[in-house]
Design a protein around this nucleic acid. Structure first.
Lengths: 361, 361
DNA sequence: CTGAAAGCGCTTACAG
DNA sequence: CTGAAAGCGCTTACAG
């Protein structure tokens, strides 16, 4: 592969001059510039990004460590992150933690070794020493979706509290009183916050959230299946199961189907995170939708601000409830007729409660 | 951040010695080794992968350019690729082409600039000059899923011919005669091969595939929606719509739902690629499943073989039909009762036709 | 077993 | 405007 030396030789200039035209440095004669451009084209020369990074101490690369690539929520997040990063002149390297702290650390370490300019993380756990050290050592970092308390790192996330209250109101209106939740790992913020929001909303209706109705999942499908089986084995099974993410809802559906039970007649089901398939499941699933694309973009902007010396801003955007049929027929709805549910614009009967919130971390 | 010089100074040895212990070179005294290890631990030193890559001319990194991250098929492929690569000591950088040739080229270029050791590609088009040049220039490369004719690059893919024949047999048995397909871009192999397999299978039953029943999609949901609307507007709409991938099937479902039509009563639907949601849609969707994980692993093995000087092998694995209810009730099935459809092991009434096939490219 | 030195492919003050 | 030279952080023959 041609190097800068080859180009310099072909153009009859020094490597310094080649470097200058490649980097659009102003002080280069028009003549030198054209000769270099010609040589570059003739040789099909492409600068070695590795060498450039070593010299400039910047890689123009962002690391993104997500909890699970098989989760459509994170996949959509990753897509918007890459898009925004590209618009700002950065590449992104994705690491998939698969909800495993050890794998998460593996990726953080690898990314750090590659000297990425900044790190976007959705932590799988309460914070590994590695990540905390990196943050303290001054690695530009931003948390997306999930975060870790007590670390001075900006957070970009959705607030689901309002939407969870609306969900509980919806369920209560439909006559449901025995509500259960499949929670995510307590060590993650989304794992604990969603349970707490649910518990608080139930309390407003004088309803308790007994331990038997609080199943411990890990955000993956299998755990949703397992926890649901436990719920259904109870002497008094819940009337509603609220899965704290879409994959556990998938697992719950599997378990319910396996017992030949019907949703919502035998058990109602709702999920956190909306995905394109939810309007099409049998029945369509009521879900809490996050502004995923906007979160990804805001996270990149915050990280790039941090990298380029500006002050990064934490961002919290509201999630919203999308009512479908999996919790029962709303008395407001006319009759049980097939609904039109285009993927891009899900039905949204309940208005978004609060405007975009921005707060400085 | 500490460099190798700092470690050498702290340990009282030369940087050469530090490098040797870091790389497990045999000729280092036990004493020197322990002093270096101690210094490394004390400083929290981590070798700079950028510098190492520049010096050794290898990055231990594979590039993976996939057609669309939002497509669960590619997401599963990416996961298995990363897993196998990690097992073999490589990292992988994913580039998402979003079915756009220009974006694909952007990622190939970026990856090449970073001097990845090898490239795994599922081409979005018939082959950009950039990619063809890279292949000719000797960049280690392997095609996964989709490929390009006339280039000497190993291919790892699934053969769907047998499964498509089984699908058509299934449809014919159910009494369907007007069958339509939503095809992918003709410039991609999977875009054209699936149509041809479908056409050939229809011919065996004396059925034609008229132009009006051949819709041009781009493997993304919107195109499935658009093409389906066209089909439904026909004076004589098809009885079955076969979507050449899962996202176009999602779009088709949207379009069908929007018209308040029912699957399979008004139109039957089948898809290429099986995904965890298909058992749960309304109705569960009949699909052709690829051995995705195995494809990803085989592709990595082929690429690493190529990189490390061994002879890479092309691999073709059979796809298989998974019958569900979206094409109508099979006369074999007892009654319309809810089925048990665990995500992990979809119902597979039709036996896999051929054993694993391996052929050298 | 160990160190001094060269060199990977760039960028960038420094002189001219 | 241009080039010679230093240096980014490593690895690896080469000598000893």
């Amino acid at each position: 592969m041609a190097s800068i030396k080859d180009v310099a030789a072909a153009a009859g200039v020094s490597v310094a001059t080649v470097s200058r035209v490649l980097n659009d440095h102003p002080s280069v004669s028009a003549d030198a510039r054209t000769r270099v451009m010609t040589a570059v084209a003739a040789l099909g020369y492409r600068p070695n990004a590795v060498a450039r990074s070593l010299r400039t101490d910047q890689t123009r690369t962002l690391g993104l460590v997500i909890s699970d690539v098989l989760n459509p929520y994170f996949t959509e997040l990753a897509r918007s992150v890459e898009e925004e990063a590209r618009a700002l002149g950065y590449s992104v390297i994705i690491g998939n933690a698969d909800e495993r702290p050890d794998l998460q650390d593996h990726h953080v370490r690898t990314l750090l070794d590659r000297r990425i300019d900044g790190l976007l993380v959705s932590p799988t756990d309460g914070g590994s020493p590695l990540m905390l050290d990196a943050a303290r050592a001054g690695t530009p970092m931003v948390f997306v979706d999930r975060w870790i308390r007590g670390v001075d790192v900006p957070v970009v996330r959705a607030d689901g509290q309002g939407a969870v209250r609306e969900l509980v109101a919806h369920l209560h209106r439909l006559g449901h009183r025995r509500l259960a939740i499949i929670a995510g790992p307590a060590a993650t913020t989304t794992g604990s916050e969603r349970v707490e929001a649910f518990r608080a909303a139930l309390a407003e209706y004088g309803l308790a959230l007994p331990d038997a109705y609080t199943g411990q999942g890990d955000f993956q499908a299998d755990s949703g299946r397992r926890v649901t089986e436990g719920f259904l084995d109870l002497p008094e099974p819940p009337e509603v199961i609220f899965a704290a993410d879409n994959l556990m809802a998938l697992g719950a559906l599997d378990a319910i189907r396996a017992r030949r039970l019907r949703v919502p007649d035998d058990v109602a089901l709702a999920a956190f995170d909306d995905i394109p398939w939810f309007p099409h499941t049998d029945p369509p699933i009521t879900a809490i939708a996050q502004p995923t694309g906007e979160l990804g973009r805001a996270a990149v902007r915050a990280l790039v601000d941090r990298i380029e010396g500006r002050t990064p801003t934490s961002v919290t955007l509201p999630a919203r409830l999308v009512v479908r049929r999996s919790c029962g027929e709303s008395s407001l709805a006319p009759t049980r007729s097939p609904q039109s549910c285009p993927t891009q614009a899900p039905v949204q009967p309940v208005p978004t409660q609060s405007p975009v919130q921005r707060s400085t971390s």
